[in-house]
Amino acid sequence: MPISYIARTRERYAGHLPYKWAVNTEAPWTPLLKPIKECRLALVSSGGFYLKTQPPFQDDDTSYRTIPVGTPLKELRIHHHGYRDADVDLDPNCVFPLDRLRELEAAGALGALVDPALSYVMVYSARREREERAPKMVAELKAAGAEAALLVPV
C-alpha cells in the first residue's frame, strides 16, 4: 500500500509552516514521436549528485550540475538536505542509474544516452523551481540534443 508521504511530512515538520504541495489537475504534453530505441534520452536527477571536482550544492540552490555520462560512479558526491540512504552510497544506480543506462544504450534499448546527465537539489519554492531552475535546465537539455528525458527524484 503506497505510503502517504504528504501526511508524514506534515507530521514530521509539525513545528514549521506546512509545505504547500503543488496540486495540478492537468499536465502539459509533448508527444513522443518515435520509439525510445531511436531517441536521445537524458537522465535528470534531483538527488544532489555532483563531481568531486565541482562545487557542492548550497542550501536553497537553484543551480544544477552536469555529470558526464562516462563518469565512474565512485567519482560522485552527494549533497542533499532532506533525505539520503546508505544504499545510494553503496550503489548510486538505485536512484542515479548511469551504469544501467549505458548498458541499455549499448544493447540498443535507447537510441543514445544524452551527455551530460543533470543533477540538482530541490528548493522549497515551487515558483523558484519553475522560474529560476527549469529554464536553465531546459536550455542545457536542448543544447545537448535531448529528445526525451527520464527524471528520477529521491
Partner: peptide, 9 residues
C-alpha cells in the same frame, strides 16, 4: 516545465 518546453518526459 521540460515537457512544456517541447521535450517529452
Amino acid at each position: 516545465e521540460i515537457e512544456r518546453a517541447g521535450i517529452p518526459t
